[in-house]
Design a protein around this nucleic acid. Sequence first.
RNA 1: GCCCUGGUGGUGGAAUUGGUAGACACGCAGGACUUAAAAUCCUGUAUUCAUUGCGAAUGUGCGGGUUCAAGUCCCGCCCGGGGUACCA
Length: 1008
Amino acid sequence: MDYNFKDIEKKWQKSWEDNHVLRVENDPSKPKYYVLDMFPYPSGAGLHVGHPLGYIASDIFSRFKRLKGFNVLHPMGWDAFGLPAEQYAIQTGQHPAITTKNNIERYKSQMNMLGLSYDWSREYKTSDPAFYKWTQWIFLKLFKSYYNNKTCKAETIDTLIQQFENSGTNGIQAACGEEFNFSAEDWKGFDDKKKSDVLFNYRLAYLSEAWVNWCPQLGTVLANDEVKDGVSERGGYPVERKLMPQWSLRMTAYADRLLNDLNDIDWSESIKEAQRNWIGRSQGSSLTFKIQNSTSNITVFTTRPDTVFGVTFITLAPENELVGKIISAEQKAKVEEYVRVSKNKSERERQTEVKKVSGEFTGAYAIHPFTGKEIPIWVGDYVLAGYGTGAVMGVPAHDSRDHAFAKHFGLDIPIVIEAPEGWDILKESYDGKEGKCINSDFLNGIDVKDAIRVAIEEIENRGLGKGKVNFRLRDAAFGRQRYWGEPIPIYYKDGIPTPMDESELPLILPEIDKFQPTETGDPPLARATDWKYKGKYQYEYTTMPGWAGSSWYYLRYEDPNNPNEFASKEAINYWQNVDLYIGGAEHSTGHLLYFRFWTKFLYDLGLVPFVEPAKKLVNQGMIQGVSAFTLRLKDIFVISHEMDLQQEFAISTYPLIYISKEWKEMIRTDETTRQHLLSFYNEVFKILNPHLEKRKFEVRFHNQEYDSWFFETHVPVKLVSKNDELDKTQFTKDRLDAFKDSPTSVAIKFFPDDNAPYFCTRAVEKMSKSKYNVVNPDSVIAQYGTDTMRMYEMFLGPLEMSKPWSTQGISGVHNFLRKFWKLFFNENGDFIVVGVDPRVDPASAGATHGSPATAAELKILHKTIKKIEEDIERLSFNTSVSAFMICLNELIELKCNKRAILEPLLICLSPFAPHIAEELWSKLGHTTSVLKANYPKFEEKYLIENTFAYPVSFNGKTRFMYELPLNLSKEEIEKQVLASEDAQKWIKDGTVKKVIVVPNKIVNIVLG
RNA sequence: GCCCUGGUGGUGGAAUUGGUAGACACGCAGGACUUAAAAUCCUGUAUUCAUUGCGAAUGUGCGGGUUCAAGUCCCGCCCGGGGUACCA
């Protein structure tokens, strides 16, 4: 009986499903373990070989934990709202719900094909009202909460209102947009609209006028992390800045906790570092400057108050309101023009012009708070409106951007921190935090680090400002002008945004006829007919962003079908937070931050008993594709000497000439080759266009730069062989097909020899449809089976490392499984395992059935049991696959076919190759799934050795091995080794200076 | 620029706490079986020199250092991958 993976895998996948063996219940008698894969967005392209890497790893881990007696929650569901389905809907009219459903089915079937042990009874999708009811519910909680900086937690907004009624803003320390100051009487005098506006300054989910990343093509705003290089991450459309009313979440209130709690979680250092940088905490001081001839002040934030005596100017952001108030008459026109231009600059332009210095003098002066000197106030777009106070104090000698600005506009650059010897302060600013203050009055002679503290104290004493912490982190934009997302459960009553009652949820996403914005520019939801709260009040038209559902989804798996709560207390108390979270690193500052933020919020409300969503996080590496390229010569000009030929050229056939890499170099350097190419083209052109044969024309290279002579284009990897040779026939056919409907006719030719093989160049890149380098798991599975695929992906290398996909080496893994199978069956297909069958009563079986394992066999087994367990615990799956191979090689050597060895080994293997394991398990006579087995217990006693072979080295170089009994004293070891013949040979005439003995490790002899 | 990663044979990689560098696998070479091929099995395979055998030297991106001992620790560079970007 051969290893027929096709039948085996189909059979067991069906059996697991039919018998619900993967279903998991809350079982307080067992310890729990929660393994979660990052929430997939089911895209239309299906899974490629890169996706399963993390899924397989988490699956192996889950199956292992089950064998170790844990009750393992390992669920899967769908992040089903999102832009791609909606874009597709706009283009095709296909409802996003349908697209999404189809994509989910495809994903699910591919996942099942991989033998992933998900408990599908817990599956859900975020676009299901039963799910998004709770997303809306959490939104309402955010809406109804504010962040109390005194208690450092979110509290109900009612207590804030109570305080306003009692004592106004007096004594309130709350996270807010701007610092308000009003009395209880003021508050009571506000009308409802005003009260609502004031409260939005405090709510954790709030509506405000805000600068947003507006993407006109997508017709929506995007979060910072959805914008890459000034264009939308999905789709690559330009993004510009726009001021509009905007729902946001006050994530900044949690900045400190998001930062500090990173210390307590077992996440990769790189992700934590990325989050720390994203949150961007900086400690410094505020400092207020009086403006000359004005009642206004300018407050700046600085991390370097120690350099305050080096301030020679102040720069305001173009958006800063003060600009309009202070400009002098003669500067007015220039400044206003500058402000207008910079405000209209798109994000992209601002980014590409980072190095360009621009600005305008406002004509106004501030007074230096310490020296009393006049300092000019400028406007410059290197100052960001959204960070700090939108104003900076310019210290050109010690800040590189201020330096560039001062140099550009000819402002003073006085030095106030001692720079290292030879530093040319006019050339480059000294930004370092080492050195002593100079030219700085009371700070003179103090080290920078102390000076910062002293300066802040002085600033506070004089009432000029106070020590302060700033964050780079922004509040998260939470509204999307989109259809395919969760409706925001808010309606407008007399212009006041009003929350729905929790009991009225879910607010169902209405059906609409078209998915575009309306003619008046309202979001698509404005198209919904008769969609009004109580038939009267307009609902909020924007929907939630893609990351809303994924910010809390892990909790729903704990109790997925609960209609009364997002998850029951019992379920949450049992399953707690995620123990192991596996996914790609691309979510480091988006999802993973929101996910942590929502968890902390739910904790504050007493809804969950933990502050972090995931204890341990591992990023699987990316599996890259190996792309292939062709080089094509761009047009060579065909030049006619006779004007009347134009007509005929129009109906000519033009050759597309492909040139291999080596020839490209030749053409560059070698004139003869270049002539060769010309005549090649000429010839081909003549053959293709016999109607021109007798006419005079000339072919010439164009004069552009050499590198622009060629196009490098992706070619589908399917058309390229292992040794990089292009399938010219198919390639030519495909290319010609592409030109079928084009008015130009073309021919495909290869230089220098059309009949010779053409070799492509290769490059490792991200696996993507657009790069034509996608490899599907389906074909690999069809050829080798799922178990091989699973083990091979693990064998490829450490989980966290990125690597290009290659099937080189897959045969080694496949052979391993076939050889493993052969331990159980001989060539005739007879089952050859000896030992007591559990189906047979041991009493009646007698000794003949038994076949005790030898010490050697037991040693191999237990070595492997130990190794596999350790490797899985540290997620080192590549080394565990090697360990299995070593074990197998050794058992084959011993011709071992004993149940006492093979049965426990089979259990160890089952997380990796569950199908073959299940099949052999049943052949061994078991009637329950191997999933229910217990991981074999490691017994140290089988590994105990009597001797150890010492590597003996001289001056650190290993020379020979010397076997000695264990438990010898260091002195005894030294004595015996030195006395040995080998050692004597190496010592010869030298003197032994020293001998290092590390028992059971090494002996090193130092010769003089 | 800054931050995070990684750099070991022809290839993927192993070496978990400073203690035999190259496990395991692929590939390649030779052999067995076969009319032949495939499959399977056996042997060899870091490099250089030596080769009749014993062997010897070099070697983990580069240059230094610490140590009896360094792929592993320290200092200074180079290169690849990822992230980030006027954050005062």
